[in-house]
């Protein structure tokens, strides 16, 4: 119990003092996760929409496959990206191993199936609701996706936030691909793993508390944006 009390005190101290090292790793964490998820969303939302609205052979298999990939272990993604980016790997000449960009690639791969699979369900549910209307207007599926994207933006925002949650919380892939280099690729989660291995459980837990607070900020920001849009735009 002492460790837990100490953790809350340490967390408060870290945040109130705006500890420089802490701000740095928060910066890296946010940078990696926001870009990873942002790029994943650009690919995964259209993909989810396409799988929901288009009819093609193997569609059901693809849906099952996407759903299964939601359970992709981060360590495996990390290992695959490591082997690709290693100097001995096919993309070695890019020199992206142990860089922030490499970590963004790993998180992007990790989150894309999650956003695609969840958004596919959102699009499908919306389609049931709007199909008749859109068909009567003669909308092609590509046009329909745009309309549904607009109608379902709040559900889809939640989907993207789920992706962000997975990205910011995972340690397996960023540890392997980033290498936990101090002042360079150290994130909140790899710092937590490091402090745990040093036996400094209070500091590790304090970093965990800070991580939750940061994630809450991001989610609150998303929620506020939604609120403002609802009130003044739509």
């Amino acid at each position: 119990m002492e460790d837990i009390y100490a953790a809350f005190a340490t967390a408060a101290g870290l945040i109130l003092n705006l500890d420089g090292d802490l701000l740095e790793i928060i910066g890296v964490s946010l940078q990696v996760s926001l870009f990873g998820v942002g790029i994943a969303a650009l690919v995964a939302l259209p993909l989810g929409g396409a799988v929901a609205l288009l009819r093609f052979p193997g569609r059901k298999i693809l849906i099952v496959f996407l759903n299964a990939l939601m359970g992709l272990p981060p360590v495996v993604v990390g290992l695959v990206v490591y082997l690709l980016l290693s100097r001995s790997g096919p993309l070695g000449m890019l020199g992206l191993l142990f860089t922030v960009t490499g970590m963004v690639i790993a998180q992007c791969l990790l989150v894309t199936p999650l956003i695609a699979a969840l958004s596919r369900q959102v699009f499908e549910d919306l389609w049931v609701e709007y199909a008749e209307q859109l068909r009567s207007l003669g909308a092609k599926p590509s046009r329909a996706v745009f309309t549904l994207l607009k109608e379902g933006k709040y559900s889809l925002l939640t989907v993207v936030l789920a992706g962000f949650g997975r990205a910011i919380a995972e340690v397996g892939s960023v540890l392997i691909v980033g290498g936990n280099i101090a002042h360079y690729t150290r994130t909140m989660t790899t710092a937590i793993a490091l402090e745990t291995s040093k036996g400094d459980l209070a500091l590790a837990l304090a970093l965990g508390i800070t991580l939750i607070i940061i994630a809450s900020f991001v989610n609150a920001l998303a929620y506020l944006t939604k609120d403002v849009l609802e009130r003044y735009v739509v």
């Binding site: 940078q31 870009f35 942002g38 790029i39 650009l42 992206l96 860089t99 922030v100 960009t101 963004v104």
Partner: peptide, 9 residues
């Protein structure tokens, strides 16, 4: 996004 992504690299 692309610019920001290349930024750190």
């Amino acid at each position: 996004l692309l610019l920001l992504l290349l930024g750190p690299g």
